[in-house]
Amino acid sequence: MLKIEDLHVEVDGKPILKGINLEIEAGQVHAIMGPNGSGKSTLAYVLAGREGYEVTKGSVLYKGQDLLEMAPETRAAEGVFLGFQYPVAIPGVSNIYFLKAALNAIRKHRGEDPLDAIDFMKLSKKKAALVQLPDELTKRSVNDGFSGGEKKRNEIYQMAMLEPSLAVLDETDSGLDIDALKVVARGVNGLRGPDRAMLVITHYQRLLDYIVPDVVHVLINGQIVRTGDKDLAKQLEREGYSEVRSASQP
């Protein structure tokens, strides 16, 4: 599904990612853990196509295609989804109306007919229920006046609507209390499937109690220093990043 090879990325001339190698198969959930400033969000943004991130070396193949060549909307149409760490508020653009535009643009890209208003609303109700997002919030302006938890639930609701092949979830747990975390995790788990891959980025192990990953990577200073199974996350929680970092030194 996703193959990242020797990826180097700079922001404002400063190297942030220094040779990332990562391969995710369909059906797998990978977690990337790392301290602040390790380059986790940079990786997420590069995969989604945000401007300002310069790839100086390496490649990213998604379903065998060069992902880095695609515009952000093309990536979305091809099935890449980014769950934002800080979802932006867009006053004046209603959640549901922009999602309908997004979904129908993606359907068009796939050669499918657009959903009409009635089918779209039916689908929206079903998906909103999945993350307990009140119907009223789906109609409000995008993230405008939403609480932290509502914003994150809105991200997962949108993911459920768009049914991506590859979901990159950037610190979906940040700012959530335990009940909200459970709701969000349940929404994510509901979307796991044999055709879908996920890359879950987090600072804390806590999220991984609820979204259990197949593979865990530790990202420190722009490089993946350790890769293991879900027990690696537990070890990190016990010992901290500095222990894992020193243990990884040859």
Partner: peptide
């Protein structure tokens, strides 16, 4: 706002439309 523009595009809305 470039953040808003990117958010819409990352969801699949074509740039002109966004």
């Amino acid at each position: 706002d470039q953040d808003q523009l990117f958010y819409l595009r990352a969801r699949g809305v074509p740039e002109d439309f966004a």
